[in-house]
Structures are given as C-alpha cells and as structure tokens.
Amino acid sequence: MIRFFTNVWNNFKEYIVLVILILASLIILSQNKSPQVQKVRAIAFGSFATFTSIISDMFSVTDLKRENQQLRERNAELMIQISKLRKYGIINEELKDLLGFKDTANVPLIPATIISRSLSMTQNMLTLNAGRKHGVLPGMPVVNDRGFIGIVHSVSEDFSIARTLNNVDLKLTVMDERSRINGIMKWTGEELVIINIPNTFDIKIGDRIVTSGISSIVPLPLPVGIVEEFRPSETSGFSYIKVKPFVDLKPIENVFIIAEVQSKQKKDLELNFYRRQSDEIR
C-alpha cells in the first residue's frame, strides 16, 4: 500500500501539488468576506506598506510636499463647498430652510499620500499612508481637489487601502446634477458607465455627475465626472452612458479622506422603517 502511494507520488507529484494548491486557492476565494481573512490582510498590507512608504518618500521632496499638502487641503475644502453651492443653486434655498435641512459646511479631511498602487487594470487600488490611528475607517470617501477618487476598503493601524473608481467592485450611486436622475455607476474594466437608465430619462452629454444623496456609501454630493457619451439602445430600452471622470488617477500623489461615513442615525432609521414594513406585511 505504502509502495503504491510512493509510486503515485513519485509519478504525479507535480499534478497532486497543483490540484491541492488550486483547491486551496478556491477555498480562499470563497473566504474573502471572512473577518479573520480581513484581519490577516490588514496586518499583511500594513507591514508591507511601511517599507513601501520609505521608497515612496525617497521620490518626493519634503518641503514642497508639505506646502503642496496644505494647498491641496485648501483646494479640496473649496471643491466640496463649490459642489454644495451648485446643489443649493438648483434646489430652492427657502424650501430647504423650511424643511430644516442642515448645512454641513465643514467636513473633516484627513490628508494622505499614495504610497503604492495596485497592479491590476480592473481592480485598481491605492495604498494610503493614513490608517486607523489617524481616524480612517472603511467606507470613508477619498477625494482630491478635482473630485471623487474612491472608497476606503481596508484599514490597518497606519495605512489604508482604497478602491478607486477604476475598480470593478466599486459600484456607486450617482446623480445627474441638472436633471436629478439617479443611477448606478461602475467600471467595466475600460470605462466608467452608468447602467440601467431608461432611454426616456433626461440625460445629456456634458451633464455633471455627482455622488448621490441616496447613496449608502457616500453621503455628500462629490463631483465625479461629466457625461461624455450618451447612446440610447433600441433593443434593450436602456441607454449607454459613458462618464469621463474629473480625476485622472495616474498622476495623483496626495489625496484626502473625508472623515465621515454614512450617518449611523440615518442608517438605523432606515433599518427600523424596513423592519416595520416587513412586520406589517406579515
């Protein structure tokens, strides 16, 4: 018996190891959401990011970096304010006052530098040198002076990983600023598109696209891009809407993390509402 197994091993060891490793990969693939896996991942990229940041720092000039950071911080604040002013211009200011809308003018910003980028065209990720210690939490939006960049995905003590707009796993609720139409935007691997918008909806080339207020990920109206191509489909009844993002991800080095995640109060309220609805149905 032992001789049989020894013979099998000697003749097919490469294939046996290959099958075992493929099975291991598939098991790991199915465990992606597990908290233990997330923890191991946070430790791994946190440790590696320490070395990456050293190399990354060698490529930047210290004094200019600080000055640049301050200017970019100011720029990002102004960008958010302008974005809000645009929104206020469209919706009647008086009605907003009557309804008791709160002005959330000052959003806290956490400055961060990109210390490395992912290898993939489809799963674009950025490693940032700001982590839990700086107040970063998963789900926080990442922006720069031009607009929305992505969402913080994983956080370690000193570093964080953000999914960018060029990541197939990031699906974002966005809004046409002019017509107030909401839609889901995603990265196809080649371009940013808004999906499932019927042909009859009012979307025009050149319309500004911002993150939607109904988004469960980004609570603020942040500029995302403009409609570059709009092609109604006669067969499906849905339009093809291509968005050109405001932010070019290649040259950016410094970003800001908006230290605000979706309001827990709002989330709880929505959750209670849905629970009540399902109780009534029963």
């Binding site: 990969s25 992606n32 991942r41 490395s116 992912s118 290898l119 993939s120 990720m125 490693t127």
Partner: peptide, 14 residues
Amino acid sequence: VDLITGSLLGSAML
C-alpha cells in the same frame, strides 16, 4: 500579492 495589494484574495494565487 493578494494579501498585500488588496485584490480578490485567492485570484492571483490561482
């Protein structure tokens, strides 16, 4: 690579 770059864990391994 999967662990460090944040890609779907197991995909680059496979």
